[in-house]
């Protein structure tokens, strides 16, 4: 759906924000672009959407070059910017009609109604933007981006400053779009969102794409699981014959923790038999998968 080839961006002050970015986004996928502040996420999105002129390289959207065939390319795109770029004197409704108008499409009140209802903005439709809270403004930005029925939706930190309930609602909106076949590119600092929504994850840092991988594979490859065994009787120290790597005793002495890589040779069987031999009994067990967040922190720190 999107093909980014050799894109570089040097801003007018000489700052290099994107370094030889190559990236393919598939049709219908949810792609999470993760990276620390200033990594170049917004710059990359802006280059695709026409807000930033790449210094070199080419970008196509749906097969259309974003420079030569900008009309066709941009017609496919909906953009939710990171900042609350809204004209505060407009009403929610008029900002929707303008948004669609700029795309050269005929007014469609039924569509606006549907979008506003999905985003719980329907009762605010005649309210001026200036009278909305920050989270509502963010939803207005999303609503605007949906008015042109985009095939590709860019969400640049859509859940920043949004409360828990609304965040759930937005995740629903994204999932529904995904069901309808919309390609979604998402940046977020809430990694659990990426974990929940994304099919693939891209990590960008210092203007370079460090890694692009299927989320499940990434988690499998990098993911650690932790097994915790709740002991029947408290221990002061681990028995000396339990020497397996990754095993530790919790501070209060009520649990034995084992951190292992998922896959075969996990070492669980030998741990359990060793414990049995040592005469340690446990009453319950629990496993926990490490989150994308930990993986992300590990990866960025490695660079």
């Amino acid at each position: 759906m999107i093909e980014i080839t050799g894109v570089n961006k040097t801003y007018s002050n000489g700052f290099v924000a994107l370094k030889d970015v190559n990236l393919t986004i598939n049709k219908g996928e949810v792609f999470a672009l993760l990276g620390p502040n200033g990594a170049g996420k917004t710059s990359l999105i802006s280059a695709i959407c026409g807000l930033v002129e790449p210094t070199s390289g080419t970008i196509t959207v749906g097969g259309f070059d974003t420079r030569k065939d900008y009309r066709q390319a941009r017609s496919l795109i909906g953009l939710v910017p990171q900042e609350l770029f809204l004209e505060i004197f407009e009403t929610v409704w008029s900002t929707m009609t303008y948004a669609r108008g700029f795309f050269g499409k005929k007014d469609d009140p039924a569509l606006y109604e549907q979008i506003l209802k999905d985003l719980s903005l329907w009762d605010k439709k005649d309210t001026k933007i200036q009278a909305l809270s920050g989270g509502m403004k963010r939803r207005v930005l999303i609503a605007r981006a949906l008015t042109n029925e985009p095939s590709v939706l860019f969400l640049d930190e859509p859940t920043a400053g949004v409360d828990v309930e609304l965040r759930r609602e937005m995740l629903e909106v994204v999932k529904n779009l995904q069901k309808r076949g919309t390609t979604v590119i998402l940046t977020t600092h809430y990694i659990e969102e990426a974990e929940e929504l994304a099919d693939r994850v891209g990590i960008i840092s210092g203007g370079e794409i460090k890694l692009v991988e299927n989320k499940v594979d990434l988690m499998k490859r990098m993911g650690h699981k932790t097994l915790s065994l709740n002991l029947e009787n408290k221990l002061d120290a681990l028995p000396t014959d339990i020497t397996q790597e990754g095993v530790s005793l919790s501070k209060d002495g009520t649990k034995i923790l084992y951190s292992y890589k998922t896959g075969s040779n996990s070492g669980i069987t030998s741990l359990l038999s060793n414990l049995k031999n040592a005469g340690i009994a446990f009453e319950d067990l629990d496993t926990e998968q490490s989150s994308l967040e930990e993986i992300f922190v590990t990866l960025v720190n490695q660079q």
Partner: peptide, 18 residues
């Protein structure tokens, strides 16, 4: 000037409009 100033110019720059 105002859309440029407050940033809402993005809606024109990202639209299929010349």
């Amino acid at each position: 000037y105002f859309p440029k100033f407050i940033g809402s110019i993005y809606e024109l720059l990202s639209a299929p409009i010349s």
